[in-house]
């Protein structure tokens, strides 16, 4: 368990980064979190889900662009198709908010 690895006494909050292509439903995750964490060191902690959009690289604009339409993997500015995904599959624990012993 990460929290004990870092010497946490209590975990208040877990921040998760979830990309639009990660295949994770935020509502389902929030719904099961309390049940899944009961009787663990995470019991009573809050799950914060940070949803991030898909970002693709447009070879014509030579820039990363945010995708707003998941049914259309094209540059939103110049409409060039792109398969170069730079962000969107993320499923990452960003940080945890913990209590720890004061260092002496």
């Amino acid at each position: 368990m990460v929290s004990s690895d870092y010497g946490a006494l209590k975990v208040h909050e877990v921040r998760l980064r979830v990309g639009a292509l990660a295949g994770v439903a935020k509502d389902a995750l929030l719904f099961c979190y309390d049940i899944a964490t009961a009787d663990t060191t995470l019991a009573g902690s809050k799950l914060v889900v940070n949803e991030v959009p898909v970002i693709l690289y447009c070879s014509v604009c030579r820039e990363e662009k945010e995708l707003t339409d998941l049914q259309r993997f094209r540059c939103p500015v110049c409409d060039t198709p792109s398969g170069d995904i730079r962000q969107g599959r993320d499923l990452e624990i960003e940080s945890i908010l913990i209590d720890e012993y004061a260092s002496t």
Binding site: Y6, L91, E94, S95, I96, D99, E100
Partner: peptide
């Protein structure tokens, strides 16, 4: 006791 934010930056499916 301190309360602080700990950066993890680890993939859930690592």
């Amino acid at each position: 006791m301190n309360t602080r934010v700990l950066e993890i930056r680890k993939g859930v499916l690592n």
